[in-house]
Design a protein around this nucleic acid. Structure first.
Lengths: 214, 214
DNA sequence: TCGACGATACCGACCGGTTGGTATGTAGGT
DNA sequence: ACCTACATACCAACCGGTCGGTATCGTCGA
């Protein structure tokens, strides 16, 4: 969900190293499938350090969702698609950016919050809430542009909030379809799904000019 | 993904009871989060019986994906939406059926294959392949109708296979968004997402007559 | 008609390793 | 002296998996 961040400095403290290891391991093997010991050795940290910073494995899960939200939120806030003059173009620019980020193996572009939700929504209410906040926060970042685009095009029968949720829906679904494929084809499968999302928005906002066939 | 099956007889053998328990437990807490002992006690069966029928926990996962495919596939094959004369109506009828199936808590309508994929796509290649077969098999059931609808409406720039995958994408994404919500709102959130899928298809196939606002 | 026989279905105690978590210690900054 | 940030050692519970045994079959020769 967030790209390779080449210029992000290697985290120094044990807490940040554990969260960074959490992103990597949870994406690859899920939350329940990742042990505290694995987290520690991936972060180059001992178990004592882990439980110094996190009261429990569940607490790390909650913190991980927040960490994920913060890093992805910062990335999209700085992205250049905001500079388009028309709201529709900002919305489509966001989708194009998401398409551009889908490359390589699924564990490099998939979403930590979506993965944790799948297995923890019922077993841990704090994790569920933290993941909800992460995904819905991501959605909220698009709502203003969507509201403007809806008004410009005179779209009826839906709302900016609902369309923002749909963006997240298709993104999460795209990750699952990508994971279902052989690694060589998974990124293309994910991009195809986002291409359909783009086309839906083009149709909805009457953007006939720029045909983009998924 | 499959509804309550009220008239399905209680399975007799240990193998079927384990698979039925697998559906229930994996939906609720994921594959890695479910232990063999839990499976056994939920099925009312001993560990000896488990390893008599399945060589390993992973083997149960593979069998579970197949079991899931078979039951859902059978359900949709018999559904009445096939009787519509026009292909578009069959496609939209399928989506309406999916919408109708989204009710109650996420563990009652979510997809076993999608859940297992999320955490096992990298740790178990056999499970990944079994889940891919399940999801893509489900998609294939719609391809003929989609191809016909595409031809009828003169849609360009995509294919029946691609649209069939998009249906699965939105379904899987809808389940994740549903899981992110408080149980009281999760079903409505899931239905909303499928409503957008319906609207995409209405726009694509120029079905202006039957406005269905998500 | 019978009973010996192998196959299948299932039982439950047990194993070594791993799990999340704790208790205690310590180095360094203030 | 005291707090933060770790390290080390350890624990009981649980993990997936094994193993020797039993109950119940259909079948086939005598």
């Amino acid at each position: 969900m967030v790209p390779n961040r080449p210029f992000r400095p290697e985290p120094q403290g044990a807490r940040d190293r554990l969260l960074e290891a959490g992103v990597k391991l949870v994406r690859r093997q899920g939350f329940a499938g990742t042990s505290v010991d694995q987290l520690c050795s991936a972060a180059g940290v001992t178990k004592g350090a882990f439980f110094h910073h996190f009261a429990s494995k569940e607490a790390l899960g909650v913190a991980l969702a927040g960490y994920w939200s913060t890093s992805t939120g910062g990335f999209f806030a700085e992205a250049p698609y905001h500079h388009h003059a028309r709201a529709v173009d900002r919305v489509l620019g966001y989708i194009d950016l998401r398409i551009a980020l889908v490359g390589g193996a699924p564990e490099e572009f998939s979403c930590v919050a979506g993965t944790m939700l799948q297995e923890s929504f019922r077993t841990s209410e704090p994790i569920r809430r933290a993941c909800e906040a992460s995904i819905m926060g991501n959605a909220r970042a698009l709502e203003a542009d969507l509201a403007e685009a809806i008004a410009d095009a005179g779209v009826t029968g839906t709302s900016a909030a609902s369309l923002a949720r749909q963006v997240q829906t298709v993104i999460q679904g795209a990750f699952i379809l990508a994971k279902s494929q052989d690694p060589a084809e998974s990124a293309a499968t994910g991009r195809e799904a986002l291409g359909h999302l783009r086309r839906y928005f083009e149709l909805l906002f009457n953007e006939r000019g720029r045909e983009n066939a998924p």
